[in-house]
């Protein structure tokens, strides 16, 4: 009987520390080959997109993507290019959010990861860039 009690006690102690061990490792895995290649692809595209962030043609949506905010500031000849950039970037971003969730073995986290990114893109955006508020209207940083 005493031995059983001791075993229980030992198990209790181990279990008490287990959550801390799990919690201490709370760093998201973002160094997979898929994430690295997505980052590189987005990095190359950013050089082109930054002009459209600055002139307000493209803004950051509340769901962590890009949208054409004001087509009028883009010359007609360039509109197709901008639309292509936006859709390619959005495809990469969607893949990025899903890939981070999957790399951390929690595919169900995709929504929260998207929400986190959405806030951080806007937070780190430069003065003058446009973003969508919670209500869907556009504001300028």
């Amino acid at each position: 009987m005493n031995r059983v009690f001791c075993r229980f006690l030992l198990l209790l102690i181990v279990l008490l520390f287990l959550p801390h061990a799990v919690y201490a490792g709370a760093n998201l895995e973002v160094n997979t080959p898929a994430i690295t290649s997505l980052k590189q692809s987005m990095q190359g595209r950013h050089i082109q997109l930054v002009n459209y962030y600055e002139n307000g043609a493209v803004g950051f949506t509340k769901d962590g993507l890009l949208a054409l905010r004001d087509a009028n500031v883009v010359p007609l000849a360039k509109r197709q290019v901008v639309n292509g950039l936006i859709s390619a970037e959005n495809q990469d971003r969607n893949l990025l959010y899903r890939e981070i969730a999957r790399a951390n073995k929690h595919p169900e986290w995709e929504k929260e990861i998207r929400a986190t990114f959405s806030q951080r893109w806007i937070k780190l955006a430069k003065t003058g860039w446009w973003y969508q508020g919670a209500g869907g209207s556009w504001s300028q940083k």
């Binding site: 998201l28 973002v30 986290w109 990114f117």
Partner: peptide
């Protein structure tokens, strides 16, 4: 892990 996610997002955005 909201804090870890924010850190990871900042790192990736910083790189991109």
């Amino acid at each position: 892990p909201a804090a870890a996610a924010e850190k990871a997002a900042d790192k990736i955005i910083g790189e991109v």
